[in-house]
């Protein structure tokens, strides 16, 4: 059918019914039972699934952040420094690595990660952060503060 007047466009509900439904059914293809076969049921669950997907994009980032933090905490605890001090000291040392990179280093590059904790510890001792003291062992990092304070 061809519409020539603009008024009739209001009643036009998109493309052909088959294609309109097909778009929904394609999204519902992996559902179970009538949720995938009956349009009126499928469309409700597709809408719900899309809402979940929207929320999930945010949640995935939060979940990954939690996982990376867990891994970094596991890494820093091996080297006798706590997470807050570690991140704060790295920031003060202008080592701007994010959680993802730090977690990867903790798992795959343990010696690199140890060097980072050493830098952080030296920095924290030099800056006098409360959670750390001179009794913490620091390997191979020499700063002006290390020379004057020891």
């Amino acid at each position: 059918m061809v519409f020539t007047t603009a008024v009739n466009f209001i009643r036009a509900r998109g493309p052909d019914e088959l294609w309109r439904k097909r778009r929904i059914f394609k999204l519902a293809a992996h559902f179970i039972g009538r949720k995938r076969n009956c349009y009126s049921i499928a469309v409700r669950y597709v809408h719900r699934a899309l809402v979940y997907a929207t929320k999930g994009r945010k949640l995935k980032k939060l979940d990954m952040k939690d996982l990376w933090e867990t891994r970094i905490i596991a890494g820093v605890n091996e080297h006798d420094i706590d997470y807050r001090t570690f991140r704060e000291s790295l920031y003060r040392s202008d080592i701007l690595l994010n959680r993802k990179v730090l977690a990867d280093l903790a798992a795959w590059e343990p010696y690199t990660f140890k060097a980072l904790t050493d830098v952080a510890k030296r920095r924290a001792i030099d800056d006098g952060l409360a959670s750390i003291n001179n009794e913490h062992k620091v390997d191979g990092i020499i700063t002006r503060g290390a020379l004057t304070k020891s």
């Binding site: 596991a74 977690a103 903790a106 798992a107």
Partner: peptide, 8 residues
Amino acid sequence: GLYKPIYH
């Protein structure tokens, strides 16, 4: 196993 950097 939360103390391992490979935790998942």
